[in-house]
């Protein structure tokens, strides 16, 4: 599994990296690298069952109370 994931990730590198370097789009390259690394971290953490921050839980934390308040107002 981990091998497969790495293959996919390096395929993406192979597809995109040469063009970015050739065109000297360094800022684009930086953003690309950050997203790529983030994705890799999330995937690997997922495979090894490591704890990850869950963005949805954050959103839930904000919007659940809104939803509950709304329920109460209308019932």
């Amino acid at each position: 599994m981990i091998l497969l994931v790495l293959v996919v990730f390096f395929l993406v590198l192979w597809l995109e990296l040469p063009k970015l370097i050739r065109q000297r789009w360094w800022w684009e390259l930086a953003v690309f690298a950050v997203i790529w690394a983030l994705a890799l971290v999330v995937s690997v953490a997922q495979i090894y069952d490591l704890p990850l921050p869950n963005p949805t839980h954050g959103l839930e934390y904000i919007f659940k109370p809104v939803s509950h308040w709304f329920e109460e107002v209308l019932s």
Binding site: V8, F9, V12, L15, E16, K19, L20, W25, W27, E28, L29, V31, F32, I35, W36, L38, A39, L40, V42, S43, Q46, L52, N54, P55, T56
Partner: peptide, 23 residues
């Protein structure tokens, strides 16, 4: 303020798929 969005298509989709699983 990037020059093109295309280089981000693939890494971002990797991130979204893995987030889709995690969330």
């Amino acid at each position: 303020k990037l020059k093109d969005y295309k280089p981000l298509v693939l890494p971002m989709s990797l991130l979204l798929v893995s987030l889709g699983i995690v969330q």
